[in-house]
Every structure is written in C-alpha cells, then in structure tokens.
C-alpha cells in the first residue's frame, strides 16, 4: 500500500530530518511509529499524504508517486488526523464539517449526505449532526475531525498523537474506533508517546531516531529489546519492563505485553517455578 524507497527529506536550508528510509507498509497493517520529540515522526507521516514531498528517494501510495500528485488527490487514499482537532474544524455544524471533504472532491448532494451519515455512524456521532462542533467536548471534536476524514473513504488512516490531551477513557474510545476500522480492512499508522497504547493496539512498531529507522519489527520483539529502545530514550511498557527484570524470563514468563497475558502465565503454571532462577 505504502512503499518508501531511500526517502530523504530536509526542510529548505536545513539539516536532513529524514535520512535514507526504506520500508513498505502492506494493506491492512496496524503500525505504530514511535520516537522522541524531534525524531521526525510527524515529518514522516506528512510524506504519506503529500503534505511534504521527498527531497530524495520516493514515496508511493498505492503505486502513485507522491511527487506527481497533490494532497487533495491523495486525501482519497490517505486520511490524516491531526493532533489538534481544532486545526480542522471551522464549519458551524457537525454535518457540514463531515461533508466538507466530499464536497471538495466534487460529490453530488445525495452522495455527500450518504457519506456524512455513514461516517457519523462509524464514530457514533449521529445524534450530534446538527450541533455546532465548538460546543462538543474535546473527545467529541476529535471524532468530528475523524469522521470528516472517513467521509472521503480513504483506505489508509494516519493519526498523529490521536490521544494527546484527552483523558484515559476518551483515548481508549478513539483507539477502539480505529481498531474497528482496522478490522474492516483499513491500514492504520499512528504516532504516540504512550507505550501502553502501542502494546495494546499495534501489530508492528517502527522506531525512529534522528531521522533514521532504529527498529522495525513486531510489537513484541521491539519491546523485548529494551537496549535499543533506551538508546533513543524510550522505555517499554510496564509489563515487559517488569518481566525483563527476571534473568531467565523467556522460559518462565514468555514475552507478555499485557496484564492479562502475564497473569495467565503466572496462575497457569501454579506460580511456583518462575522464581527459581532469579
């Protein structure tokens, strides 16, 4: 779906922000992009819908070279959710806001209505269609922004820190919505600083550090190589960190990511053997 080859990017008169990245994201993957502030995460995300164009190498979305396309055209393939929903929202009703994208794409009145209703249903906003988005809570505004992307029917969803500034419940609600879309076959790429969230949702993790890929592997393998993570000042979630304090954790605990997994391992094996080698 997304093919990145020797991507290099530098802002005008600046040092390169991304250096020689090559990777591929297949249709239907659930990818987390992690790294410190300033590692180039957002810069990389913006390559996927052509907001930024490579200064070296190529980015192909579904076969289209982003340099030969515009963000407007790519918007039908890649939906980009910004960190702050207020950057997106400016129309007086939720319905208009969701319909703005399809209207830009030149859809007919009926088609716009159909898409608005469909997208609103996907994020649970049907009761609010005639409300002014500014009177909604931050979590709901985030959903409005989200639905306004879904209405353009993109295959790939790109999310830049979707849970920042929201409380735990709102964050989980957004991620559950994203997960449901993923189950319907969407490709998801998200950036976050919350490692617990990564462990809970991502299948694949790409670790960026100073514009380069430090690791690109399954979630489990990334969090069980903490030395590499620590080099870029990231720390695995609590459960993997705890398990790795035991010398021969592999035999005793395996490589759990969640409380449930570790709890099952401990209670399943009778809670006896695992301490013998520590």
């Amino acid at each position: 779906m997304i093919k990145v080859e020797q991507l290099t990017f530098a802002y005008p008169n600046g040092m390169p922000v991304l250096e020689n990245l090559s990777f591929e994201i297949k249709s239907g993957e659930f990818v987390a992009l992690i790294g410190q502030n300033g590692a180039g995460k957002t810069t990389l995300l913006k390559q996927f819908n052509g907001l930024l164009k490579p200064t070296g190498g190529t980015v192909r979305i579904d076969g289209i070279d982003t340099r030969n396309s515009t963000t407007g055209i790519l918007a039908q393939k890649v939906g980009f959710l910004f960190q702050n929903p207020d950057h997106q929202i400016f129309l007086p009703t939720v319905a208009q806001e969701i319909g703005f994208g399809p209207a830009n794409l030149g859809c007919s009145r009926e088609e716009i209505d159909r898409r608005v209703r469909e997208a609103a249903a996907q994020v649970g906003l049907e009761p609010y269609l005639n409300e002014n988005p500014l009177f909604l809570s931050k979590g709901q505004r985030q959903r409005v922004a989200f639905a306004s992307l879904l209405s353009m029917r993109p295959q790939v969803m790109v999310l830049d820190e979707p849970t920042t500034g929201q409380d735990y419940r709102e964050g989980i609600e957004i991620m559950e919505m994203v997960k449901a879309l993923h189950r319907q076959g969407h490709t998801v790429i998200f950036v976050t600083h919350d490692m617990e969230l990564v462990a809970r949702y991502a299948e694949r993790v790409i670790v960026l550090s100073q514009g380069r890929i430090l690791m690109d592997d399954t979630c489990r393998r990334v969090f069980y190589q903490p030395d590499v993570l620590r080099r870029t000042n990231l720390f695995p979630p609590q459960i993997p960190t705890l398990v790795q304090k035991f010398d021969c954790y592999q035999e005793d605990f395996g490589t759990p990511l969640s409380v449930e997994e570790l709890y099952a391992t401990i209670t399943g094996c009778g809670g006896e053997e695992y301490v013998h080698c520590s």
Binding site: L51, T71, F80, L149
Partner: peptide
C-alpha cells in the same frame, strides 16, 4: 506555525490550498 498547521489540515481534506 499555527496557520501552517491549519492549512495542512484543510489540504488533507482535499481543500485546494496547494
């Protein structure tokens, strides 16, 4: 910077700012 973010957010919804 904020203006730039807003423009980009609208571009991402096929608004013809580019």
């Amino acid at each position: 910077n904020e203006m730039e973010q807003i423009i980009q957010a609208q571009c991402s919804r096929a608004h013809r700012l580019d």
